[in-house]
Amino acid sequence: MARKVKCKNTECKHHCKNDYCDTTVNINSGGRCESFEKNIVYYFHLVWEALADKNFIDMVEIIRNPEIKIGLFMSWSASIWDLLKWSGEPAVW
């Protein structure tokens, strides 16, 4: 019998409104969800954590955590998209 599982991990691809998971949840013996998949919020969170105490991200930090590169690209893309939207110019991708 399938049942809905409450999940508060907003960084998961399967997270839905009202804190529910939209996939079959697999929990391992340690109690961790094996169905977790990263979504855009995960990468934005990495960038904001890296910028918590300073206003730059250096190459040493990127080498330590290569996923920050993905977050930086997504943040940059979202910023450009937002600028184009507000400028009234059509976005050409």
Rank of each mutant, 00 (worst) to 15 (best):
G31D: 05
A52W: 08
G71H: 04
M74D: 06
C7P: 01
I27V: 15
L84I: 13
K8I: 01
W76Q: 08
F44D: 00
S75C: 08
G88P: 01
N39C: 08
N18E: 14
E34N: 12
A50F: 03
A78N: 13
E34Y: 00
L72A: 02
N55I: 03
M59S: 14
L46F: 02
V25N: 05
K8N: 10
V5I: 15
F56T: 09
W86Y: 13
A52V: 04
D58I: 08
R32K: 12
H45A: 06
F73K: 07
G31C: 08
N18Y: 11
T23V: 11
S35M: 02
L46R: 05
A52T: 12
R32V: 06
D53W: 14
F36P: 09
K38D: 01
A50C: 03
D19S: 12
A91T: 10
S35F: 02
K4R: 05
K4G: 03
T23L: 00
Y42Q: 05
D53I: 14
A91E: 04
I57C: 12
K17D: 15
K69N: 03
E11C: 01
V25T: 13
W86E: 14
W93C: 12
V5Q: 05
T24E: 13
K54Q: 15
W76Y: 11
R64F: 01
I63H: 02
L84Q: 11
E37M: 07
I57M: 13
N28G: 06
N65G: 03
L72F: 02
G88Q: 04
I68M: 08
K17R: 13
K13G: 00
S75V: 06
S75L: 13
K69S: 13
K54R: 15
K85Q: 12
T10F: 04
N9S: 08
Y42S: 06
I62W: 04
M1V: 13
E89K: 07
E67V: 06
P66V: 13
A52I: 09
V47Y: 00
I70Y: 06
T24G: 06
M59V: 13
K85A: 10
H15S: 07
L46M: 05
I40T: 15
A2S: 03
A78I: 01
S29D: 12
K85F: 12
Y43I: 11
R64S: 12
V92Y: 11
L72C: 08
V25M: 14
E34W: 01
K85S: 12
D58Y: 04
N28I: 04
I63L: 10
W81G: 07
T23N: 13
D82I: 07
F44H: 06
E61K: 14
V41P: 00
D58L: 04
N26E: 14
K69Y: 01
K85T: 09
S29R: 08
E34M: 15
T24H: 07
H15C: 02
D58P: 03
E37W: 00
L83S: 08
I62M: 10
H45V: 00
V25K: 11
I57N: 12
V60N: 14
S77R: 04
G31Y: 05
V5D: 00
